[in-house]
């Protein structure tokens, strides 16, 4: 636990200029360790999505410092030239809806990431099948996405986020469309995967069902975060 998976210091994001400028992030500090599942909660418009997009290297912060697995990726400017490769190789994404590619089968949805990273097809498919096994959806490996239940689709999406051994997974409201039982099942899976693959997972949520399960929670309001200990309720 010597190197944090994510370390943010004074991260700011301003949209627009002049009178129309809006400060979405006003100096966010955050440290997440490998193998940890942390909740990021806050009301609508608090800056959750903006923070997630900055962490995902989708939008550029305005100021601050950002490290990923010990490497500085932002320090006033991007320190990495190929942000696309950064997202592909070092950040996993799990969305509110699974957003799987509908024209690929389950295995290829997961194998696509390693393939995009240049791994050969056989190795990519083996990795995909291993993850599908770990997530208990191996039996649907050849199925089309439309044939899966919502819970199965979300598991496949989690498998995809892990496909390139990313040290960080950003999960954006991953339990929003699920009932309590399935929502808790997803959180359990995220915790298992974090432990098994030593991956840091940030779960953006305002789902009251799952908030008590986090051991650490970052509250975000008006562009600023404050950390508090969670209940860490067993699932």
């Amino acid at each position: 636990m010597d190197t944090p998976a994510i370390k943010l210091t004074g991260l700011k994001k301003r949209y627009g200029t002049g009178d129309a400028a809006v400060d979405a992030l006003k100096g966010v500090d955050m440290t997440i360790w490998p193998g940890e599942v942390v909740g990021l909660v806050g009301p609508s418009g608090s800056g959750k999505s903006t923070l997630l997009k900055c962490l995902g290297a989708v939008i550029e912060p305005t100021a601050g410092h950002m490290e990923l697995a010990g490497e500085v990726i932002y320090d006033g400017v991007w320190k990495i030239s190929d942000l696309r490769a950064l997202r592909r190789d070092r950040i996993g994404f799990v969305f509110q809806a699974p957003y799987l590619i509908p024209f690929l089968d389950v295995t290829d949805n997961v194998a696509l990431l390693p393939m995009l990273a240049g791994r050969d097809n056989a190795a990519a498919r083996k990795r995909a099948l291993d993850l599908l096994t770990a997530l208990d959806v191996r039996h649907r490996a050849g199925a089309q996405v439309s044939q899966l239940s919502g819970g199965e689709q979300q598991r496949v999406a989690i498998a995809r986020s892990l496909a390139n051994h990313a040290p960080v997974i950003l999960a954006d409201e991953p339990t929003a469309p699920l009932d309590s039982e399935r929502a808790l099942a997803v959180v359990r899976i995220l915790n298992d995967m974090a432990q098994q693959y030593n991956t840091a997972i940030i779960v953006v949520t305002h789902d009251e069902k799952i908030i008590p399960t986090f051991k650490r929670i970052y509250h975000i309001r008006d562009g600023k975060t404050h950390e508090e200990a969670g209940e860490g309720r067993p699932i």
Partner: peptide, 13 residues
């Protein structure tokens, strides 16, 4: 659009 956005997000060139 959504699939293309996901592809770009996960690193498709």
């Amino acid at each position: 659009v959504r699939e293309i956005a996901v592809l770009k997000l996960i690193g498709a060139k």
